[in-house]
C-alpha cells in the first residue's frame, strides 16, 4: 500500500523531477512543453478506466464513462498538438543536409 510516508516520498521526488526538467528548458520550447506536460497528465484516463471498470451502479457508470471520455481526449489531443508543434522545429543545418 502506498500510504502515508511512502506516498509523500513519491510526491516529493516527482515534484523535484518536474522542477528540474522544466527549469533548464529554453523559452523557445515553453509552448510545446506546456502542451507536452498537458499530455502527460492525460494518464488520468488510466485512473478513470479503473473507476469505470469497477462501477457498480448506473450513476457510477455514467460518471466513469465521462471520466474516460474526457481523459482520453486529454491524452490524445495533448499528444497530437505537441507532436505537430515539435515536428516543425528545425535547425538550418538540417535543412541544408
Amino acid at each position: 500500500m502506498l500510504t502515508g510516508f511512502i506516498a509523500l516520498y513519491i510526491f516529493m521526488l516527482a515534484a523535484f523531477t518536474g522542477y528540474e526538467i522544466i527549469g533548464r528548458v529554453p523559452s523557445i520550447l515553453h509552448t510545446p512543453l506546456m502542451s507536452g506536460s498537458n499530455f502527460v497528465h492525460g494518464i488520468v484516463v488510466v485512473g478513470a478506466l479503473f473507476t469505470l471498470l469497477n462501477a457498480t451502479s448506473i450513476t457510477e457508470q455514467v460518471i466513469g464513462f465521462f471520466g474516460v471520455l474526457l481523459g482520453a481526449g486529454n491524452a490524445a489531443g495533448g499528444y497530437v498538438v505537441t507532436e505537430r508543434m515539435l515536428q516543425m522545429f528545425k535547425s538550418s543545418d538540417k535543412k541544408k543536409a
Partner: peptide, 24 residues
C-alpha cells in the same frame, strides 16, 4: 486522485506536471 486509487503512475505523472506547471 492517483493516491486515492493507489496508482503510482498517476501519482508520479500528476505530481511531475503539477510542479513543472507551477514553475512554468
Amino acid at each position: 486522485e492517483g493516491f486515492v486509487l493507489q496508482n503510482p503512475a498517476l501519482m508520479i505523472a500528476g505530481m511531475v506536471v503539477g510542479s513543472a506547471g507551477t514553475l512554468l
